[in-house]
Design a protein around this nucleic acid. Structure first.
Length: 271
DNA sequence: AAAAGCCCCTGGATGC
DNA sequence: TGCATCCAGGGGCTTT
């Protein structure tokens, strides 16, 4: 569930309130994707300076090091003055002077990793290869188009890979390609500059609108105060196999690319 | 270097 | 109702 809009909506829902909080205790539950990298007790006494986002990672800046939080496929955060007793899928918790931050993640593809700094090897391994931030100025047409030209894989899979542009997962890749009128199977290298420009605009548009809608909630996603997203009601193609295209009425098709479902309109996205 | 496959894990939906 | 099978929004790692 969590792609850029969901991660950013989560960040916005608790960043201001946790900034300045002092950590009273930290606890881990069942193993997540990677070990925390520090004894939880050593987080006590640290201050949370703020929360940033890079791609689908949240960066919790501490006065000593930072915590990288990834929500994986099924993770969500809660932040409140008090929370109910931990359940079986709560795997990380930070009790602070401002409230408790908790990660719930049934599938445990998510992660919380402490690193000494962004240049630490563990941080570079996770953040170093990330592409441009789609909602920032460094996502410019010249470098986007140049990066696409080097890749012969399908445009959908290149968007999802995260090394050209970050934050675009399975839902928004399908949606952006629909908005740009591009067939998801087209080789990235074959996009003309005007079509790359349309795609760039479509990515910004769909991510921006999804963020404004609080993200997409297909099953369990909610931000740190429990609010669900509403973008699923605006989806043009995702999850709409066989239903009429909202633009031309042609039945939406689903195919499989790299073990993932891709939805598209065969008429609006001719190639 | 790039691309394709595999795999981590659990829960929900579907089919028999 | 019970059980097996398939599928799911991510992404690092290994193999081609």
């Amino acid at each position: 569930m969590p792609e850029l809009p969901e991660v950013e909506a989560t960040r916005l829902s608790f960043a201001d309130r946790i900034a300045g909080a002092r950590i009273l205790s930290a606890a881990t539950g069942k193993a997540l994707r990677w070990p925390l990298g520090i004894a939880p007790a050593r987080l006590s006494g640290r201050t949370v300076r703020g929360v940033r986002r890079r791609g689908k990672y949240l960066l919790l800046d501490l006065d000593e090091g930072l915590l990288l939080i990834h929500l994986g496929m099924s993770g969500s955060l809660s932040f409140a003055a008090s929370l109910p007793p931990p359940g079986p899928h709560d795997h990380f918790e930070l009790v602070t002077t401002r409230g408790t931050l908790r990660l719930n993640d049934p599938r445990r593809f998510g992660a919380v990793v402490w690193v000494a700094g962004e240049e630490a090897p563990a941080a570079r391994k996770l953040l170093g290869g990330l592409g441009a931030e789609p909602l920032s100025a460094d996502f410019d047409l010249a470098s986007f188009h140049a990066a696409l030209k080097k890749r012969r894989a399908s445009i959908k899979q290149v968007l999802m890979a995260g090394d050209v542009v970050v934050g675009v997962g399975n839902i928004y890749a399908s949606e952006a390609l629909f908005l740009a009128g591009i067939r998801p199977t087209l080789s990235a290298a074959r996009l003309s500059r005007p079509r790359a420009e349309r795609l760039q605009a479509a990515i910004r548009d769909v991510l921006g609108r999804a963020l404004a809608a609080g993200g997409t909630t297909l099953r369990n996603y909610s931000n740190a105060v429990g609010e669900r997203g509403n973008f699923q009601f605006e989806a043009m193609v995702y999850g709409r196999e066989g239903q009429p295209c909202r633009v031309c009425g042609t039945p939406i098709r689903v195919i499989r690319q790299g073990q993932r479902a891709t939805y598209f309109c065969p008429n609006c996205q001719k190639n």
